[in-house]
Structures are given as C-alpha cells and as structure tokens.
Amino acid sequence: MAPAARTAGDSGQRIGSPGADEEITVDVVRRRSVADDVLELTLVRPTADPLPQWTPGAHVDVLLPTGIVRQYSLCGDPGETGSWRIGVLREPAGRGGSAWLHDHAVEGTELVLRGPRNNFPLVDAERYVFVAGGVGITPVLPMVHAAERAGRPWVLWYGGRRRSSMAFLEELGGYGDRVRPRPEDESGQLDLATVLAEQEPGTLYYCCGPSGLIDAMRSRCQGMPSGSLRVERFSAVPQPAVEEPDGGIEVVCRRSGLTVAVPPGTSILDAVRQAGVDVLSSCTEGICGTCETTVLDGVPEHRDSLLTEDEQEAGDTMMICVSRALGDRLVLDL
C-alpha cells in the first residue's frame, strides 16, 4: 500500500486493540508481486505466537529502520491470527518508505510494527457499496470478505489505471459480477454517477483511495443521510506514528515562529496564549467557533460541537479550545 497518512474516517470511531501501541516484531515470510509496483508481504512473529486481533479496515504502523513510519492496511483474513498481510505500492514520489520495503523487505527481513488500529471500521448495515481506487483496495478486501460472510448484499467498484496495476483481482474473481473492475485504459475513469445510480435505503458506502476519488464521492453523497459514506484517504503526507490519546503534544505556531509544548490536561488555546500568541476565544467549550484555527500540518482530534463531520474529517481547521491531535504534533496558522 501507498505511504499512507490517514485522517479519521467519517465514523470518527477509533477501535484500538488493547496494547495497540506495543511494538511487535515480525518477520517477512512471504513476498510476492500482486500487481505492477504492488508488493504483498506476509508477516509472522518469529516466535510463531498469534498476532493481535483486528477487524476489517484496520492498519498497522511499520517502523522502518530508516526512521520513517508508514501505515499500511491489513488486507488478509482477520480470522488468520498467525500471520498478517499488507500490500505496498511503490511510490516514486514518496519519501522512501515504500521504496525501502520494495528494495529491502525480502523473506527473512525483520520489521517492527505498531497497532493494529482501525479508523475505518466496517459497521453493520443492510447492504454495502464498496468503492476502491488503486491500492485503496487493501482495507476494502477484508471488508468484502466480511460482508460476504455476514450474508449482506454488496458490490465492489474498483478503479485502477490498468488491469495489471490492480492488486487482488484474482482473489476477487470468485465473486462474479459483484466485483466491477474499471481499468482506466479499458473503460475510462470510474463513473461515480453509475456507482450511485441506484441508492437503496440502508446502504453504507465505503470508499478508499486517492483524494480526488474521495472528494468526488463526498460531493456526490452530500444529500445522503449523515454517516452513509465512510472514507479513508491516502495521501503522501507523512504522519507521526505515535498516538497518545491525551498525551502531550507539540504545537508549531508557524506565523509566530514558536514551538509550544502542550502538556496533558492543558488546552492548546491556553498553552499558546501562555507562550504569548494572541488568539481570540469566547466559549472555551468548542461551541462558538471564535478560536477556529487553520491546521497546516498534522491531524487534529476534534472535540468541538460546531464543525460538521465533513469539516472534521477534512482536518484543515480546528477549535483549539477543546480539540487536540491524533499524532504528537500540529502545525497551526497562528
């Protein structure tokens, strides 16, 4: 899978397994090419002990020896606790995380992981429409299997550049016409008007892929009941891997040129004010929006009441009186 930075899914729900931040050492036991530039790695503990439980949509952090941390969705079978599978797209434009795995992760290579965590959980629904773009298929693959096992009607629209670049087509072959591959060189871009032509009540839409696809889905699904569309966005922005639900964070105030440590229990608002940054605020409860601040980098963890789900998911603005960070660092326009 691509070097993936994640914003919280539409659900806002975070399902972490106990000990989600423990480091897990694994060995690569199998490496195979599953599409042009897409590598599948099968990982097991050297001790052969079972790995933590996970649910479809979950990802793990891979702590590369180069110091880079990358996040990859688990794409195997959650029932198989002895091993995990991840898919890695070589991203020439990336910062070298995927390239390192492509070049060095051979059978026998040791990797250190953290997780799994799930920001993109599969919620029970009457039926599902899955939309995957490119390597965005990885979290969707176990979802499809899970929907099938649960006996829920589903279809998968799967867009890619060309057939040979689309991973797991073979594995999905058994599902017949419920899997709808749309290689761009054969059928053009994935036509969302067709995807959304029939909207049956009770359907949840899951979409994973590049930003363009997600933005297009979002704008087309605006009229749907809130929560009908759940997305996971892959972007090339590297994210801090450490997640401390209420830990200390570092806030860089770009305009002021200050870096402020925000200890647990102190709001970002109070911390930056103490550091001398002038910020307007009123309610200090995440209601009024007076302290709204533009997020330049990092992923906010929203705790306000004013922003809509969509605005929270977009992650480009936050109420610093109550909201914090999903990682340990935020860069703000202050």
Binding site: L280, S281, S282, C283, I287, C288, G289, T290, L306, T308
Partner: peptide, 13 residues
Amino acid sequence: VESSIRSDLAALR
C-alpha cells in the same frame, strides 16, 4: 467577541 452557548449551535452552523 460575542458570547455563545449550546443553544446557539444551529445558528452558528
């Protein structure tokens, strides 16, 4: 700066 409370939420949105 205006003061706001929870019942303002719909108006603020």
